[in-house]
């Protein structure tokens, strides 16, 4: 296959055709969650990290694992607990008696796809070790900076914050995640199929990657080049302005949040095989991107569907 670059219409179609099998394949494992799978993939190719917030047992881990397999990425899982130390995530240098030197044993963070399970069970210290690595795409320990593999994608899961024994992520750290999604219970048909079908674990074993790492990187590079017209930027800015002026929202969207919406919408457009962003793309990704960044004035916390819904209903498409 020739190297794919740019965003010419033909290239865009190729990229869509590359990504579509991933969605199909993951959908076979995680049943009835096509929308969430697409959004997760969009988040990944927009080089963002994903936070999945839901009760245990709805398939968060399975989704992460399936994505890793489909994309042929190396995969590590870190179970966050209250006694987790930063070193347990990042790695540690151990003195090797034979060589007489310290040798670095990389932690689970050194993988292309890291699943940080129940991230809000850990102490803020361990959380911040992970979040810093996510932000910088590198780990600095004892004066040595070690780059993380490319692509690098973190899927963190967290239990709803009202559960016992949690350290909810502060707003500033929530901001590091491009999207925050909920899986939700499967619909009855999907659930019936789950009960009937093969064990998910076995299915995962049998999955073959349908995309090369090089292709994935090319797609990631193509995302920022998806065209956003003036009219679309008008719409984006109207959304941001509305969030800042609405008295129902405690704080408006930051410029970083606006950029996050744009990137996610570009990724979404690319996945639809388009070389330009439409308001539809913005509307599709907006709940996932801003849900955890907006706080309603009369809201108790946690990510919300209300804020994005108000935004979408209140801003006319220019």
């Amino acid at each position: 296959m020739p190297p794919i670059t740019g965003t010419a219409p033909a290239t865009v179609t190729i990229m869509r055709d590359l990504l579509e099998p991933v969605v199909t394949q993951v959908s076979r494992i995680v049943l009835g969650k096509g929308e969430v799978i697409r959004l997760s993939l969009a988040c990944l190719i927009a080089r963002g990290h994903l936070l999945i917030e839901d009760v245990p047992g709805v398939g968060k881990t399975t989704l992460a694992h399936a994505l890793a397999r489909s994309l042929g990425l190396s995969f590590h899982r870190v179970q966050f607990t209250s006694d987790l130390l930063p070193a347990d995530v990042l790695g540690v240098s151990v003195y090797d008696r034979q060589t007489g030197r310290f040798e670095f044993h990389p932690g689970p963070i050194f993988a292309q796809l890291v699943l940080a399970d129940e991230v809000n069970r850990a102490t803020p210290k361990a959380q911040s070790a992970l979040l810093e690595a996510m932000e910088e795409h590198q780990v600095t320990l004892e004066g040595t900076t070690r780059p993380l593999p490319e692509p690098f994608f973190v899927i963190a899961t967290q239990n709803p914050s009202h559960q016992v024994g949690t350290f909810p992520l502060p707003e500033s750290q929530l901001d590091r995640f491009l999207m925050c999604l909920q899986l939700g219970y499967p619909d009855p048909a999907a659930e019936r199929e789950l009960f009937r079908g093969q064990d998910r674990r076995e299915l995962l074993e049998g999955m073959a990657p349908c995309l090369g790492v090089e292709d994935l990187l090319a797609v990631q590079r193509a995302v920022p080049r998806v065209h956003a017209s003036e009219a679309l930027l008008d719409y984006l800015q109207a959304l941001v302005r509305f969030s800042r002026e609405s008295p129902e929202l405690r704080s408006g969207l930051s410029p970083r949040a606006g950029l996050a919406v744009l990137r996610a919408a570009q990724a979404w457009a690319l996945m639809a095989g388009r070389d330009h962003v439409l308001p539809d793309d913005v509307q599709a990704v907006l709940p996932g991107v801003v849900g955890h960044r907006l706080r309603l004035v009369d809201d108790s916390g946690g990510s919300s569907r209300e804020g994005p819904a108000r935004l979408l209903a209140g801003v006319p498409v220019p």
């Binding site: 439409l278 308001p279 539809d280 979408l312 498409v317």
Partner: peptide
């Protein structure tokens, strides 16, 4: 609706 995107 004013807030409705074209494809939708």
């Amino acid at each position: 609706a004013p807030a409705e995107a074209p494809l939708a």
